[in-house]
Every structure is written in C-alpha cells, then in structure tokens.
Design a protein around this nucleic acid. Sequence first.
RNA 1: GGAGAGAUGGCCGAGUAGGUCGAAGGCGCUCGCCUGCUAAGCGAGUAUACUGGGAAACCGGUAUCGAGGGUUCGAAUCCCUCUCUCUCCGCCA
Length: 423
Amino acid sequence: MLDMKYIRENLDETERRLRTRGGESYLDGFRELDERRRKLLKEGEALKALRNSVSDEIGRTKDKSQVQDKILEMREVSHKIKGLDEELNQVDEQLHSFLLTVPNLPHLTTPVGISENDNVLVRSWGEPRKLAFEAKPHWDLGEDLGILDFERGAKITGARFTLYRGAGARLERALINLMLDLHTDTHGYQEVLPPFMVNRDSMTGTGQLPKFEEDLFKLVDPEFFLIPTAEVPVTNIHRGEILKKGDLPIRYCAYTPCFRREAGSYGKDTRGLIRQHQFNKVELVQFVHPLESDAELEALTGHAEKVLQLLELPYRTMALCSGDIGFSSAKTYDIEVWLPGQSCYREISSCSTFGDFQARRASIRFREDEKGKPEFVHTINGSGLAVGRTLVAILENYQQSDGSVLIPSALRTYMGGMERITR
RNA sequence: GGAGAGAUGGCCGAGUAGGUCGAAGGCGCUCGCCUGCUAAGCGAGUAUACUGGGAAACCGGUAUCGAGGGUUCGAAUCCCUCUCUCUCCGCCA
C-alpha cells in the first residue's frame, strides 16, 4: 500500500511513475474520495467534540431536570453523528479497498520498460554447457530414470502434480537441506517452519489479496488459503508489530511447499516440473532498516546465486523492467538457470525489495530511537531457490550420454554418497 | 465435538450498581538529580492512528480497553454477534 499522504501531495508524480508499469491509469478518483473523506471527518469530529463536552457537563450536573433540553439536543446531535459516521465508513472502505489495489511504485533504479524483453542483464555466471549429444528435457530423463512419475501424479490429484520416487525424492530433499544449511550456517538466516495455510489478513499484508484471489487455492470453512510462497507466512510473522532498531535486520529462511492455481497459464509449460500447482521452495525473507534495503537486496540476491554456484549451474541475473515487476515489488532481480534440455534460461529465483509497501499493509514498524515515532521497515525476499526447478536444472545439466545423471559434488553427502543416478 | 474461564497500555495488573478513565498501581525503559565503584534513592517523562494549525519545536480535535454492532445525552464498564487464548472431557498424528 502506498502512503495516502504521499499520494495526496504528489499525485501527478505518483501517477506518472505508476504508469511505467504499463497500465492506463492508477489513481483516478483518489482526489475526490480523499477530499470527501476529510470533509466528513471534520464535520463528524466537530459534532463529537460538542457532544463530549456537553455530555461531560450533563454528567457533572446533579439535578438532571436542569439539563433536559441539552439531553434532547444531544440526542439530535448523536443522530447526526451516526449518519455522518455511516457515510464516512463507506468512503473509508472505498478508499481503503482502492488503495489495496494500487501497485507499488517502481524503484528509481528499476529499468523502465514494457515487457520481459526490456529486462536488463546484470551479470552471468558459468558457461552454458554444450553437450556432446542431444540433450534430453528433464521430463524424459526423469521418466526414463524412474524418478519422476507424471502419470501417477495426475492420477492421484490432477494435471500439474507429480510423484517423485527414489533418488528423485531424495534429490529434492537433499536440495532443501543444502539450501537451508547454506543460508543458516553461512548467510546468517534463522530457519523457520511456518504454517502452510494462512488467513485473509496475512494474504492482504503481503499483497496477494484482494487482487489475486484467483491465483490462490482456498479453503472454504474455515476460510484459509494455501500459501503460494513462504513469503506470506514469514513476512506476516511480524505483522502489527513495532520492532526495535537493534532487532534489524531480521533474516529468516524457510522451506515450504507452495501452492499456485496457475490460472491464466493454461497450455504453458504443461510438460515436466517447471510449472506445478505444488512445488517446494526455500525462501529468504528480510526485515531491514529503510536505508539498508537497497544493499540488502544485492546481498540477498547473492545468497540465492551462491546456491547455483555451489551446484555449478550456469545462470544469469536479470533486472526486471517496470512493466515486468510484480504488484508489490519496487525492484526485482530474477535469477535464470541454464537448461540445456530446452536450450534456454529459466527463472529459478526472484529477489525483490518491496520498500515499505508490504510493511505499510501489514503494519510492520520499528523505532529509530527509543522516543522516536514508529517508521515502517522495508521488506525484501527471494527464492533461495525454487527446489523443483533446481532439480530440473541438475537433471538437464548433469545428464550423460548414457542417460544417467551425475550428482553435483556439493550434493553428494546429502545423497548418502550417491554419485550418479542410473536406471 | 462437549463443559467452563478469560481477552485492558512494552509487560504485569486495577477498574463491571455507566459520567471526573487514554485509563490507578507495579515492573521495564528514557532524561535529570544525588551518590567517590556496581547498586540503591529522588524527580520528571514514557501508546497508536487519523485530522486541523504551524517552517519547525509543538499545540488542538477525534478515535482506540480482542473485533464488529446495539442501548444511552454519555460505555473499558450494560446487551448481541464473531475471533482468539486457557482449563477439563472426548477424539487423534
């Protein structure tokens, strides 16, 4: 959520920056609602002040017969107040739900552009492997090796669900452990294991709701949502809290499964593990001082990249342009891993700073000093990494001409010493 | 699922025959005084949001005692609904 006062005072500038996201208009109607709200507020509060002081006087008068006329008068005033309050509540609600649907302002360093074609290459690491034979896509490798069972997954649940078996299941688990160990032991994150279902307030706090309900799996009674990313429960750990300056930065990492409806992507990536309704992810989440967020985003992105370096998987890091960043994001780096089976780079991590956008929605604040006013923290997060896609990258990059797959050396202890997956 | 208890400021905890309660008291914290170490003692301060005024320091108004609604001139206090927490029973990984 954007700061109402900031919008009020910088309406044109804000609108201009929002439009770099590609939409037509974002703030139509704000001015009218805002002015109407303040008018109603002023009127109602004046009447309440009157009522308070007269009621006080009535209370101090022993002989109530002397103040009968005032009681009657205040009855009228209260009636008026009630009407004004109702009107105000309506306007408030309109304004609030309006603000909840306005996306974040792009960061000043976010490249301006329309689509993913305008994203900017920041750096690349490793050489895309040239295999001496025809590379197989991971779905063929996985089925041939008997470690990925797409048919059974579809039978058990439906499309975009997969059954992992044997070394495949073990590899997924090994990756989760490798990532968690790296981030906790060397990058200084605290591991948390949050609930996988959250309530509406949590989804609103991080920005998934109210706008993107159709992307979520929802339970009806009680009304809970399956998390689409650990960002949601982990960021909401501190919803409604005022943190101490000394607490910052707070760094959490969490393994969770993620559940996404993938509405609107029918027919896209229908084969293999790339786009599933349920996938595993290790997520990095930080609560930082506003002055630190830019630097911490760089650091966090580096933490995610480190996983790929350990696994010796070639990747590149892209700065997403204003037209391609997500609703809540101010700035996003995507890390894309090279997939020889498909001869392309695919997103394996997305690292974003949200500025105070989520913190304002979720009311996560800190005090600069003991007596200071609470200020909003900045939140940043990123995948470190998407586990299923990492498994895909390993299968495709480490495949051998005989159809077997070598295990990257960093992963072997986690695989009980296994060096190669064979049929 | 059944029965009961409860939700007050950073924490603990008063306040329920409605008015002087944004809320006693204690702890914690901040600042000052005092004390030739640490400690103790004394004094003052110590919620948040919105809103009006002001360059600012700050001053005023309104709201908030789990959430929402109701009764009333007036509600932390009365009524209703909901949420959450705790205890006991049942069930269960």
